[in-house]
Simulated assay, not measured.
Amino acid sequence: MTDGTLVQDFGADPIATRETDHYQKEYIEGFVDKWDELIDWEARAESEGRFFIDILKARDKKKVLDAAAGTGFHSIQLLKAGFDVTTVDGSAEMLGKAFENGRRRNLVLNTVHADWRWLNKDVHGKFDAIICLGNSFTHLFDEHDRRRALAEFYAALKWDGILIIDQRNYDSILDGDFSTKHKYYYCGDQVVAEPEHVDDGLARFRYAFPDGAVYHLNMFPLRKAYTRKLLTDVGFKKVKTYGDFQETYQENDPDFFVHVAEKLADEQ
């Protein structure tokens, strides 16, 4: 799945590119190398605080699958906090960068290259928790792919496991209320990440860097209520949604929503 080319290929009509598997061509080496510049690890760690660590520790979760590891930010934060972490991504470029980032911090990541739709074929065992962060779930354009991936997550969890999954606030983007403070997720200095085209089936984002480099990602704009329904449809019994890590929020304010879905809440 590695694409070592220097130019992203969206074909002659970029906004017609709406296939799940295309993300593998989007995360080319040059873009992956700049991903940490986009995130700014220190700023992101400060903005998130202990949000994910506290959610996991409050529920006594120890064994965690980071299903959309990217360059390894959350895997490394959780390892440093004492969790047993398996680091997964569908992009070989991202996974290589994550391992390198861990090694630089004297950590050895347990990495697995896997597609969510066939997760349990490549990742074995049951987990206390699965995290799927960084707006990654929106790379799935086909509803069947989304349901299949969530079913795979569900199957990989222990009976009392939880799934933590996030997404951009696509409701505000689709409804014309988009504005981003870049306070929480994409904290990089002078890096611009904004929608270039939006319709009900596509959110095409443009990422511009200070050195003039420009990259794009084509993603499916998931509405919050739709994501919550998918989670309950596949079997999760309880879903709690946070807006930019807060329990209370105005619907159009958050940049991101974080859903915490419990597999078998209050029953064994």
Results as ranks from 00 to 15, higher is better:
A155V: 10
A155H: 10
A156S: 14
A156N: 04
K158P: 06
D160V: 08
D160N: 15
D160C: 09
G161T: 03
G161L: 01
I162C: 08
I162E: 00
L163I: 02
L163T: 01
I164Y: 02
I164C: 06
D166N: 08
D166L: 05
Q167K: 14
Q167A: 13
Q167G: 08
R168V: 04
Y170H: 09
Y170F: 14
D171N: 12
S172G: 10
I173M: 09
L174E: 04
L174A: 04
L174M: 09
D177G: 14
D177P: 07
F178G: 03
F178I: 04
K183Y: 11
K183F: 11
K183N: 12
Y184S: 02
C187A: 10
G188T: 03
D189I: 15
Q190Y: 12
Q190L: 14
Q190I: 10
Q190M: 14
V191Q: 04
V192K: 15
E194I: 08
E194V: 10
E194D: 11
E194Y: 09
P195L: 06
P195Q: 06
E196K: 09
E196Y: 06
E196V: 03
H197D: 08
D200V: 15
G201K: 14
G201Y: 13
L202T: 06
L202K: 02
A203K: 04
F205I: 10
R206Y: 04
Y207S: 01
Y207A: 00
A208S: 15
A208G: 08
A208V: 10
A208P: 03
P210F: 04
P210V: 00
D211A: 08
G212F: 05
V214W: 02
Y215W: 07
Y215A: 02
H216L: 11
H216W: 13
L217Q: 09
L217F: 09
M219P: 01
M219D: 00
P221S: 05
P221M: 07
P221F: 05
P221T: 06
L222Q: 03
L222T: 01
L222N: 05
L222D: 03
R223L: 09
K224P: 04
K224Q: 14
A225I: 13
Y226A: 12
T227Y: 09
R228I: 14
K229G: 09
K229H: 14
T232W: 10
D233A: 13
V234M: 05
V234C: 06
G235Q: 05
G235H: 04
G235C: 07
F236H: 04
K237L: 11
K237C: 10
K237R: 13
K238D: 08
K238M: 13
K238G: 07
V239S: 04
K240L: 12
T241A: 09
T241L: 08
Y242N: 05
D244Y: 05
F245A: 12
F245I: 12
Q246Y: 11
E247C: 09
T248F: 12
Y249D: 01
Q250T: 13
E251N: 11
E251D: 11
N252S: 15
N252T: 15
D253C: 10
D253W: 11
